[in-house]
Design a protein around this nucleic acid. Sequence first.
RNA 1: GUCUCUGUAGUUCAACGGAUAGAACGAAAGUUUCCUAAACUUUAAAUAAGGGUUCGAUUCCCUUCAGAGAUACCA
Length: 598
Amino acid sequence: MNIEAKLTASIKDALKVLYGQDVPVAQIQLQKTKKEFKGHLTLVVFPFLRMSRKKPELTAQEIGEYLEQHESSIAGFNVVKGFLNLIISSAAWIELLNNINADERYGFVDATNSSPLVMIEYSSPNTNKPLHLGHMRNNFLGSSLANIVKANGNKVIKTNIVNDRGIHICKSMLAWLKYGHGETPESSGKKGDHLIGDYYVAFDKHYKAEVADLMENKGLTKEEAEANAPLMKEAHEMLVKWEADDPDVRALWKKMNDWVYAGFDQTYRRMGVSFDKIYYESNTYLEGKKKVDEGLHKGLFYRKEDGSVWADLTSEGLDQKLLLRSDGTSVYMTQDIGTAELRFSDYPIDKMIYVVGNEQNYHFQVLSLLLDKLGFKWGKDLVHFSYGMVELPEGKMKSREGTVVDADDLMDEMFNQARDTSKELGKLEGLTEEEANNIARIVGMGALKYFILKVDARKNMTFNPKESIDFNGNTGPFIQYTYARIQSVLRKAEESGIIIPKELPTSVELNEKEENLIQSVANFAVVVKQAGDDYSPSDIANYIYDLVKEFNQFYHDYSILHEENDAVKIFRIVLSSNVAKVVSLGMGLLGIDVPDRM
RNA sequence: GUCUCUGUAGUUCAACGGAUAGAACGAAAGUUUCCUAAACUUUAAAUAAGGGUUCGAUUCCCUUCAGAGAUACCA
């Protein structure tokens, strides 16, 4: 049982004995004492004034005195205004550290047979362009979220819905046919996803030229020109052919998609993300059309004169939503309905989480309603894990205009930076080329992932490619560096033959920094739980940073291996190793590796 | 127009309704005979504006202002 829970129970007793009131434990909130005051945990007594009918100072004093007498782990207390600062005994802290030390996966809960099954969809790329920084935020968030949900005792299935069909693919295909001269990844040496992306950009360039021409020479409005440009018409014809299973179109489609997948696989591996089950929209969209037809027959939807099918959500306070185009082809929403159908017939899913950008908040509001209308019992409870855009200093990234930060390029750059920095600092001496590169890879990816994950997911964030990513301060490498230093200390401790007992004696007298550090380590379990409840990887990131910063200050002020008192030395080694353990587990939740040396 | 989200040091980010709003980068100044200086210490610097709710508001509510997004036969 942790200290906080024990204290909360004692405070409940105190309130009952002193004021005769039974207060639910949820209302007794202990917080970490601010560092400018003496103590470890603080009780704010303002909420209890109503029952004590005394001044805040006096109320705090009474509760403090009760606890000092009745709770063995309390070594003392002080009162500042309405704040009761409690001081926990060294022995209680050591006991807590012993408990943490005995638990290899402290803070994690294993799933059982009866645990809920959570499916998490993330990544969800289009096959017409390579992955960029925005996708990286999605992948890192989704992947980390899966780790966090799993660490909280759920069964997790990571899934990816690949958007391998639709008008955007047709644009790339058409451009390749028209301007490609048979270029392949082999012929040009380009990564497949990049090659396709280049043709997507080419389509847009030629299309824009056509629109401008129509406006200038035929006097059409912008809307008319956009709808009547020959390239766009051709692309739509191609989409109709694709849905009609035209063999030529399908063959081309398959060839080009395979190039893209080869490229994606490489990028995913490098990012360290993976999936348990991949769905393709080319397989799910028909399922969606079927469901829409069903809904049409049941009178849930209606057909317009031109043949398009719509859902009327005005009674729910939303608009009318298109479900099938007038030419009978399906749209985004149709596909998501079909995908949901397939997933729930494949798995007994208890909860569905979609990791998708906040620009689609409305889409998921609608999807939830539509699934509910169609009789999916999970429809109302779907979770849209909505995250903000990654912006450049100049504003939003636009893939069609080529102003994106490419995922592959960025990872290259991070790797190179990490390697250069290591070299400058002389950290690579005595290592093989392979070892050095491995460390540069871990550090470079750590910097990138941490940079993205430390930010509250729902906020837009800014990325400046020129300044790129720091390796100092609140960064992944700072955390990794601290971990590496602890590992070094532990190696040296082992070399010098120090024997670490399973249980530390509770008689060692600790200093304030040591007690606070144990408190911070112990808090990991609370943070993991919290992050699981709130779906918040950034909570983990910010917790680890605080812990590491605290450890660094301790490390600077006190020596570990040069400490003369053996009992204290051993205690500090155990404390350090548990800091490292929690850091490693926490970084693992973020999908970030920690190196033994760097 | 309507709806949603976001406004915190020069910049990038923190802060279950709790104490004097924390960090980092950048700026200025320091610390290496000692376990990895990718570290540590010090200084200057912020809650968009106005109202309300209460013992207490960056946090909750209202108004205004600013930014982003949605409201597409794009995905």
